[in-house]
Amino acid sequence: MTTLTQSISIQPENIINKLKQFDPKANYQIDKLIYYPYHFFKYKMKAKGLLKLDGYLGCTIDSISGQGAIIDHTPLFMEENLHDQPCLPSTLSLQDAKIMAEDFLNHSASLKLKFFSIPKMQLEQHERFFRPYWIIVNQKNNEKYPSIMIDGVSGKYHPLNI
């Protein structure tokens, strides 16, 4: 399956070394690389407030949870064949994700930019893409050392309950 992805910038060896620096007793290892689905939306916005806005606003929508996140620039995508890679399935349709993106951007923009009216938005770009995550597990199965999901692009991590 050829699809859009983001380039891996965090290498597994660096992750393991950082974890060992935090706690030398931890015995983590790379379990696998997975690809997590997202939608990217970029809108042209016009709105009136204390300042007039005439520009672009973008967000990503998590294709499983529906969680939105404002982004400050268009992500760099590359086409990659993920045929042999584990890709988590999306639970959101494009239409549902688009509605969520518009609601999320309207809410976020009105709170942060103090608009007097609902912004006019026109969709400029949409991409469905997969973001790489490393799954890191502790070889000792100790509750003190949970499995971790590490973003392969940013390096941010999330404990897993598996």
Rank of each mutant, 00 (worst) to 15 (best):
K25V: 08
K25C: 07
K25S: 15
N27C: 12
N27H: 14
N27R: 14
N27M: 13
Y28R: 03
Q29N: 09
Q29G: 08
Q29V: 12
K32M: 13
K32Y: 08
K32Q: 15
K32N: 14
L33N: 06
L33A: 07
L33F: 09
L33Q: 13
I34H: 03
Y35F: 14
Y36C: 01
Y36W: 14
P37A: 08
P37F: 06
Y38L: 08
Y38T: 00
Y38N: 05
Y38M: 05
Y38Q: 02
H39F: 15
F40S: 00
F40D: 02
F40T: 00
F41G: 03
F41H: 04
F41V: 04
K42R: 13
K42D: 11
K42S: 13
K42A: 10
K42W: 04
Y43M: 09
K44N: 12
K44H: 15
K44G: 07
M45L: 15
A47R: 01
K48D: 10
K48T: 10
G49R: 03
G49Q: 06
L50I: 07
L51S: 12
L51F: 14
L51Q: 12
K52S: 14
K52T: 14
K52W: 10
L53P: 01
L53V: 15
D54K: 08
D54T: 01
D54L: 07
D54E: 13
D54A: 07
G55T: 11
G55V: 09
Y56V: 12
Y56L: 15
L57H: 06
G58R: 00
G58T: 00
G58M: 10
G58N: 01
G58V: 00
C59S: 06
C59V: 03
T60L: 08
I61H: 04
I61S: 03
D62V: 02
D62G: 03
S63Y: 00
S63T: 00
S63E: 07
S63C: 06
I64N: 02
I64D: 02
S65H: 07
S65N: 11
G66A: 08
G66W: 07
G66Q: 06
G66F: 07
G68M: 02
G68H: 02
G68Y: 02
G68Q: 01
A69V: 05
A69E: 13
I70R: 10
I70M: 14
I71Y: 02
I71N: 02
D72F: 12
D72W: 04
H73D: 11
H73E: 13
H73C: 06
T74C: 07
T74H: 02
P75F: 08
L76F: 08
F77S: 06
F77T: 05
M78D: 11
M78I: 14
E79V: 00
E79T: 05
E79F: 04
E79G: 05
E79Y: 03
E79C: 00
E80I: 01
E80Y: 04
N81F: 06
N81T: 07
N81M: 07
N81K: 09
H83Y: 05
H83L: 12
H83C: 01
H83T: 11
H83K: 11
D84N: 11
D84C: 02
Q85N: 12
Q85S: 15
Q85M: 15
Q85C: 11
P86Q: 15
P86Y: 14
P86G: 04
